[in-house]
């Protein structure tokens, strides 16, 4: 098994303590850092996401894999040409105003990061203006993700998307929405570009939308 395959296996199994060392060994062997990132980690997380979607593994297994990848990225980062790992793009993420829930949103952030994106997490109870401000401050952001956990904060999600849709930057971003009560039909109705029902699907959707943004 190649060193990169070993990295991939350790990421998939969530072996946080091993990944850093394996990445260092791969670098010492002269492996290309970009290859270690793409094949050893991002692809491995793709496999993890797919298994989660198919109900072959559970949320904690996805979380430990993402945590393991993070350990590997720490070792890898100084060796990447740009010093960054956000090859796929940049996303602004947050839970809408009036909603303090972030477990699902954090999972989405983690999986999207694991797919190679840089995620700017605005946190919880995010006012509409803060979303707009963040997109303006990050001209390279191509995705905006808005989350609502409560049926009672669905209107705030609607308002947030409506406001983003009015902005001059609308053409350069794609808007993703999610949260327990949200459906594809609701996402369509409020004018979002995409909806996904779980964190693994969100990462796949982010890749797809970023490619067309």
């Amino acid at each position: 098994m190649s060193k990169i395959q070993e990295v991939a296996e350790a990421v998939e199994k969530g072996k946080a303590k091993l990944v850093g060392g394996l990445v260092q060994e791969a670098l010492d062997e002269g492996c290309d850092p970009v290859e270690i990132l793409n094949q050893g980690m991002i692809d491995a997380m793709g496999v993890v996401g797919e298994k989660f979607k198919n109900n072959e593994i559970f949320v904690p297994e996805m979380l430990v894999a993402a945590r393991a990848m993070k350990k590997g990225v720490e070792v890898l980062k100084p060796h990447l040409a740009s010093g960054g790992t956000s090859s796929a793009g940049k996303m602004i993420l947050g839970t809408v105003a009036g909603d303090l829930h972030d477990i699902g949103k954090n999972l989405v952030g983690m999986m999207i990061e694991s797919a190679g994106f840089e995620v700017i997490d605005l946190g919880i109870d995010v006012p509409i203006e803060k979303f707009i401000e963040a997109v303006n401050e990050n001209p390279d952001a191509t995705l905006v993700g808005c989350s609502a956990l409560l049926t009672t904060t669905m209107p705030a999600l609607r308002d947030t998307v409506a406001a983003l849709n009015e902005q001059p930057f609308r053409d350069r971003i794609k808007i993703m929405v999610g949260g327990a009560p949200i459906t594809q039909a609701f996402a369509d109705e409020i004018g979002a570009d995409g909806y996904s029902e779980d964190a693994a699907s969100a990462a796949q959707l982010a890749k797809k939308l970023a490619a067309t943004a």
């Binding site: 904690p60 979380l63 430990v64």
Partner: peptide, 11 residues
């Protein structure tokens, strides 16, 4: 916290 405890169950 949810994320940490979920990971603890496995790790």
């Amino acid at each position: 916290r949810m994320e940490n405890f979920l990971m603890d169950i496995y790790a």
